[in-house]
Design a protein around this nucleic acid. Sequence first.
DNA 1: ACCTGAACACCGTTCAAGT
DNA 2: ACCTGAACACCGTTCAAGT
Lengths: 241, 241
Amino acid sequence: MENDELAPHQPTSRRQPLSRDLILRVAIDLMDRQGVQQLTMRQLGQALGVEAMALYHHVNGREDLLEGVVDLLVNEIRIEPGAPTPAPDGWQGLLQWVAHSVRDLAVQHPNIFPLIATRHPAAPWLRPPLRSLRVVDEFLQALVARGFTRAQAARTYRVFTSFLLGHLLLESATLGAETSPVEEPLDEGDADVPNQDEELDLKEFPTLAEFRPLLQAHDTDQEFEQALEALLNRLDLEMSQ
Amino acid sequence: MENDELAPHQPTSRRQPLSRDLILRVAIDLMDRQGVQQLTMRQLGQALGVEAMALYHHVNGREDLLEGVVDLLVNEIRIEPGAPTPAPDGWQGLLQWVAHSVRDLAVQHPNIFPLIATRHPAAPWLRPPLRSLRVVDEFLQALVARGFTRAQAARTYRVFTSFLLGHLLLESATLGAETSPVEEPLDEGDADVPNQDEELDLKEFPTLAEFRPLLQAHDTDQEFEQALEALLNRLDLEMSQ
DNA sequence: ACCTGAACACCGTTCAAGT
DNA sequence: ACCTGAACACCGTTCAAGT
């Protein structure tokens, strides 16, 4: 019943030597399960079979740890597909590929994506979620290689990051709502109405009550594809002017 | 040189009686200046001329405080203009109005907007930044009043919130980067190159170095208007099908 | 070289006690 | 009714000391 129930990443036996990379990966694992705020240096140390203070030899404090986690995850984004899949030869295909690559990241780490979305990048002209130098460099190069002028590529970077951030932050929030426990304030006096999981008083908002089924019933995948399609059309229009 | 330099909201003289609303407003004031993370119950108490423990009579802990701040700010969003300005009679005019209303909020509180963007709403079908029951109710009603079917209104709510979140979170991040101090890790050995404010090593990324001026030079206002325009066109197209 | 023990300066939060 | 003092169980982080 205590809080040491989460299985440590390593069994009690031998442990790997500490390294920044190992620390970051275990941190990601813990954050995926509990959320970012609940991750503690002491808990992270324990999961690695080490005292918390040992982490400071590989990581420059908690802020640096979070920065490292964000950087590691963002750098997993692939701008061009790997060997088996051929590189898309049109810019539309490229943007589709990148969009899905980033979406996979958001869906796999819904509890961490808000951190990626809100941490200040190294420079103000870097925009989450494409906020690592390597990734942005590759992205812009890939667009230029497909015929964009530099001004068009820069503009596309801005429009595209806005699109990804809006859609994926909302999608990850929905996914994260189940995983990440939000402590209930407790006690309401009379626990009379046992309204399922969703305890929400819509008496004052009849319009909203009417709309509720419509608001929850929607196809996330399809809407992402549609919005992406609309974005590509818009860019196509701008390009040809 | 200590940390009690920020002027308390009240002069040392007499102070107003404590209330949830006053507490929230002072909290907002402090968060605007220092960022969310740095706000402490003890510091907030001090700014109100009171011990931290006194806050717990009006606010249900720190989480509830943050929730209250988000709720208060989101409820400042006006769906229809007030008395002097006439209500827009088309849905395009309505969405324009709301978009600017939300944008004002983001620009006035760039340090708090990430909190609004990432906190889990009361229900999974509520989407930041339009995440208060009253605001969403009014929003949907306003759309229906302008001829939308309910399905169209619900869909517009989703598309519109995605749009706002993407654009405004990125805009507020740029604004917040100046206000919110990020502690520098310090010491790099040789402090040889005194490169202005922006200390970033682009040697490995020549493409990026080339692009940098293009990436920072852009008109935020104009791009917001253009993107909004494009969104309205897209919705218009969908409507007429 | 890498990790630990003990300590410091903080947190949020509780609760009995004051007025 | 509302606020305070003192205390509890935590934090992140430091630093001298161990091996």
